[in-house]
Amino acid sequence: MTDPLVRLENVSVRFDGRPAVQHVNLSVHRGDIFTIIGPNGAGKTTLIKALVGLQAVTEGTVERAPGLVIGYVPQQLQIEPTLPLHVGRFMALSGQPEAECRRALERTGIGHLMASEIHHLSGGERQRLLLARALVRRPDLLVLDEPAQGVDINGQAALYNLIRELRDELNCGVIMISHDLHLVMAATDKVICLNQHVCCSGFPADISHDPAFIDTFGHSVAESLAVYHHHHNHSHDLHGDVVSRKAAEPAAHGAHCNHDHH
C-alpha cells in the first residue's frame, strides 16, 4: 500500500482543558472515502479541522504527505447579505485562472451560473459552488464538512454520487462528515463513528452491527441500516428530480440511484 495522504496518531484536542477529540488514529489513502458520523458535540468538525491544519492539536501528531493539496468544503458559505458577489468573482478569489474556475463549475454542474449572484443560489447550488472552489486546484485530498447541508434528499443522492465520481477522476482521498446515515451507507467506503473518541469504524455493511454504533444511534437506526440496499435504475437532475436513465444519459453530471429500501 502507498503512503497515506494524511495520518493522525493519538490526536487529542482540548479547549480550556475540556476534551473535544481524544486519542484518534486515522490514515487516509488515495481512493479512500471515509465518512465521520456521530452525535452533535462529538468533535467531528474539530477533527477534520485538525486534519487540514486549521486547528492545533493538544496531543499527538498529524502527518501530511509532502506537497499535499487539500480541497476543503466548509459546512456553509458565509457571506455578508449586503455584499454583492457573483459566482465568477467568488471563484476568482481562489487565485486560479478563469479557465480552471469555469471547468470546475462545469464539472459540478453549475457552469451556467457563472454570472449569478451567490445570494440568489439555492442550497444545492451553493454546496456545488463550494465543491467547485475546492476542486479548482485538483486536490489530492478532498475534505467536506456536511456537504449536503441544506440540500433535499434527492439532491443529496446526486451530490454524494458526484463526490464518488470526483474521487475516481482525481484519484484523491475523501473524508467527510455527514448526518445522512442512509445515504452515507450507500456513498462511502468506510465509516468512523466518533463521540470524542473513535467508538467504532469499518465497512458500512458491518458497522451497523457494532454495539458502540447501536449505543450511539439506537437499535431502530441500526436495524434500518442493516437491511438498507442501494441499487441504480434511475437518475436525478441537479434539482433532485427523478428523470429516466435515457433522459439522463446526455447529462454528464446526473446521479444514478435507485432507493430500494426495506
Rank of each mutant, 00 (worst) to 15 (best):
V21R: 13
E106C: 07
P211K: 02
R7F: 02
R18V: 12
I70S: 00
A212Y: 04
M91Y: 06
G41K: 09
G254D: 13
L77Y: 01
T188K: 06
V62Q: 02
Q149K: 12
G254C: 13
G109F: 08
L144D: 06
G150A: 05
L194W: 07
F15T: 03
R128D: 02
N40I: 05
D32T: 07
G38M: 04
L8W: 07
P204D: 09
C101Y: 00
P39E: 14
N171W: 03
P39K: 14
A148T: 15
V62E: 00
K49E: 15
E249R: 12
H120N: 15
L181K: 11
L194P: 02
T58N: 05
K246D: 15
H119T: 11
E117L: 07
E98Q: 14
L162V: 07
N171K: 12
L131G: 01
G41R: 07
T82R: 10
H234P: 02
N40T: 14
D3E: 15
I118D: 02
P19K: 08
L166D: 05
A158Q: 13
T35R: 01
H262Y: 12
I70W: 01
A132S: 10
L77K: 07
G123D: 08
S235I: 07
D145Q: 07
S122P: 00
A99V: 06
C193D: 12
K190C: 05
F34P: 00
C172F: 04
S27T: 12
H179M: 10
L162A: 10
L130P: 00
H259N: 06
E125K: 05
F15H: 11
I214H: 04
L170G: 03
G109P: 01
T82L: 06
A226R: 15
E98H: 03
Q78H: 12
V62T: 10
P97L: 10
L130W: 04
P250I: 06
P204K: 11
P74W: 00
H209F: 10
K49D: 14
G60P: 01
F213T: 11
H182P: 04
F203N: 13
L5H: 05
A252L: 14
F213Y: 14
G173I: 09
L144N: 03
A255D: 07
V191G: 08
G240I: 06
E117K: 03
V198K: 14
E9I: 04
G88Y: 11
H120C: 01
D241V: 03
